[in-house]
Amino acid sequence: MKIPIIPIFFRSFFLQSVWNYERMQNVGFVFSLIPWLRRLYSNDKKKLYERIKAHYGFFNTHPYFASLLIGIVMRLEEAYSRNEVDSDQVMRTKTMLAGPIAAIGDRLIWSTWRAFCGIFAVCYYILHGQFFYTSANIIAGILLYLIVYNFFGHLPIRLLGIFFGYNYSKEVVVKISKFQLQKVLEVIRMIGITILLFSSFIYSISISDNFMLAALFWTNILLAIVLSRKIAEVVVFALLVILNISLLGLLQ
């Protein structure tokens, strides 16, 4: 059966529209699945109603990788419509896979890809001097960030996830594990650290005419590394701002 890919892909952007504590992403998940269920049960309104109700229960996973689960559920729903599996099997698979897929998404996207793109954008600005900061150059930086993040990460995952989930169904986690994601994450992380240290070095040279400021710059980095292991980031930031104001006052 032909997959209505465009409507499902578009609807997947609304996955968290009515995020709630009781069933989390349930409304968005059913909303994404409706074009497929309509196709499967075009002649059976009662069955369509039943399946929508069945999928209206608790659902929570990573918003980008939810496409994988949508694809998997589409395949299972197709099998269910032919009486090859029962409803319990569909629901069990959906619930069982949501956790591991969310873990992969959190680690790959939130912890690594988004952080890497953020560093990339920050360094784009830090590496240039203050004369660079015109509105046009700032907008160029914003566009660069959005293009890299979305076209090389976000959108392909959303789109290909539907096909991948549909084609591999329950085998999807095994297939993903073959990509050696751990090594990919390590490489991205190392590149991120290198870019950040290099940019910090260049930046500290640019302010080295005031030795005190350059020294304070590196002291801050070291203190933030040590403190943020113990305390929340916002608290570390507030503490160091107060410390810096006091030090700057004493050293003047």
């Binding site: 912890s111 952080a115 560093i119 920050v122 830090i126 992380r189 991120g192 650290i193 950040l196 240290l197 910090s200 930046y203 302010i207 005031n210 400021l213 304070l216 710059f217 590196w218 801050n220 980095i221 070291l222 203190l223 933030a224 590394i225 040590v226 943020s228 292991r229 980031e233 570390v236 930031f237 160091l240 701002v241 810096n244 104001i245 700057l248 006052g249 003047q252």
Partner: peptide, 28 residues
């Protein structure tokens, strides 16, 4: 009269964020 200190602060503020990110990446 801490205004001047605050002006200097803008130059070194990003370093705190850089430290936080480095700590996060090293920990991972």
């Amino acid at each position: 009269q801490i205004y001047q200190n605050i002006v200097n602060l803008t130059v070194i503020l990003p370093s705190i964020g850089i430290g936080v990110v480095l700590s996060y990446f090293i920990e991972k």
